[in-house]
Amino acid sequence: MINVLCFAHMKDIFGGERLAINSGGIATVKDVLEHLKSAYDADVSGIMTAVNEEFAEESTPVSQGDTVALIPPVSGG
């Protein structure tokens, strides 16, 4: 499985802070986002991602057991 963490309004979109998706057919961040778009009919445009707590690109590899965080524009401070 791949763990997906949802923050801020992503929690509302996905109905929770944490999702687990099957890693079959998933090789990159882009694959994760495509899966979420189709499985949840979710708009994830403009969302940054992190893989295992490091900011990622769409091409960043994702594999079994990894944690992918969906990071909306930050607003700390």
Binding site: F7, A50, V74, S75
Partner: peptide, 10 residues
């Protein structure tokens, strides 16, 4: 902080 730290306010 406002650019790269994953913190959000509601």
């Amino acid at each position: 902080i406002k650019q790269i730290v994953p913190i959000w306010k509601k």
